[in-house]
Simulated scan of single mutants.
Amino acid sequence: MSTDSATAAHYAQALENTAADPSRCTVPWGVCPEHGATLKSTGGRAWCMAPVCFNVWTYDRLDAACTEPATHTIQADNGDRYVVCDGHALTARTQITDGQVLPGLPS
């Protein structure tokens, strides 16, 4: 699977997850809820690499679906919307180019 089709598959899954439970983050991988995409994992555990963070998880949070509450909406240029947590919103602001990160959930 190419990177582009893998990314498209992840966003398609996020759209399905938004419809299934609009109160939960829909991204199928974890982040630090405070610092975003700063996780490392090995041996079935994960930790945040931010120097001021002491968050540690006893499971591989990086490769698990995010279970944080949804707080933001990602609005893609094509009209698709999906909901994300604070950590994924923080990461999305620095990584997406074709869309917006909006505070709050879709009405």
Rank of each mutant, 00 (worst) to 15 (best):
T3F: 12
T3Y: 07
D4K: 15
T7C: 08
T7W: 11
A8G: 10
A9V: 09
Y11A: 10
A12D: 15
Q13D: 10
E16L: 15
T18L: 04
A20W: 03
D21M: 02
P22R: 10
R24T: 11
T26K: 11
T26I: 06
V27L: 15
P28E: 05
P28L: 12
G30Q: 01
G30W: 01
V31P: 00
H35G: 07
G36E: 06
G36S: 05
A37W: 00
T38Q: 06
K40Y: 07
K40F: 08
K40W: 05
K40S: 14
S41Y: 02
G43S: 02
C48P: 00
M49C: 12
M49Q: 14
M49D: 14
A50G: 00
A50S: 05
V52S: 08
V52E: 07
C53L: 01
F54L: 06
N55D: 07
N55K: 12
V56K: 03
W57Y: 12
W57H: 03
D60G: 01
L62Q: 06
A64D: 15
A64C: 14
A65K: 10
C66Y: 03
T67K: 13
T67W: 10
E68H: 12
P69K: 04
P69A: 08
P69S: 11
A70K: 09
A70Q: 09
H72L: 07
H72R: 07
T73S: 11
Q75M: 10
A76R: 15
D77T: 11
N78A: 11
G79W: 06
D80E: 14
D80Q: 13
D80I: 03
V83M: 02
V84Y: 02
C85S: 12
C85H: 03
C85Y: 02
H88T: 04
A89Q: 04
T91Q: 04
A92W: 02
R93K: 14
Q95L: 11
I96Y: 00
T97D: 13
D98E: 12
D98V: 03
D98F: 10
G99L: 05
G99T: 04
Q100E: 14
V101S: 05
L105P: 06
P106M: 04
P106I: 06
